[in-house]
């Protein structure tokens, strides 16, 4: 299981990256993250919503209520322009951390 500090820190970049592929809703976001991490990145489901609301308040994403094919009402979130910029920033920062870590790891095996 991934450490909770890392889970918390990665929530925003993950949500932004998922939404950059198109609008989505809370449940689907959680399932997708779970599936992509092989179940290792797990959130307490309810905790996603305060994060989404906070991001919406900061103008990174926007939301709308719509009905699904089955008639269920869902709140769909999509990326705003500022969200796209924030995502790019996150990507740059995470890539940097990753490259530093990878470099150090490589040196260990030389």
């Amino acid at each position: 299981m991934i450490r909770k500090e890392l889970v918390a820190a990665s929530a925003e970049p993950l949500i932004l990256s998922l939404l950059s592929r198109g609008e989505s809703y809370g449940y689907a976001i959680i399932q997708e993250v779970k599936a992509r991490s092989g179940g290792k990145l797990q959130w307490t489901d309810g905790m996603l919503y305060p994060v989404l609301h906070r991001m919406e308040h900061r103008g990174l994403i926007k939301s709308r209520w719509a009905e699904s094919e089955t008639g269920r009402k869902r709140k769909y979130y999509s990326l705003k322009k500022d969200g796209k910029h924030a995502m790019q920033e996150h990507h740059a920062q995470w890539s940097l951390v990753h490259s530093v870590l990878a470099g150090l790891r490589k040196e260990q095996y030389v």
């Binding site: 307490t44 489901d45 309810g46 905790m47 919503y49 305060p50 994060v51 609301h53 906070r54 308040h57």
Partner: peptide
């Protein structure tokens, strides 16, 4: 169980401005 307990959730929503 998966969605979580009300108390910490309320706290997070309150911090998010609700």
């Amino acid at each position: 169980q998966q969605i979580g307990q009300a108390e910490p959730l309320k706290e997070e929503f309150r911090n998010a401005g609700f």
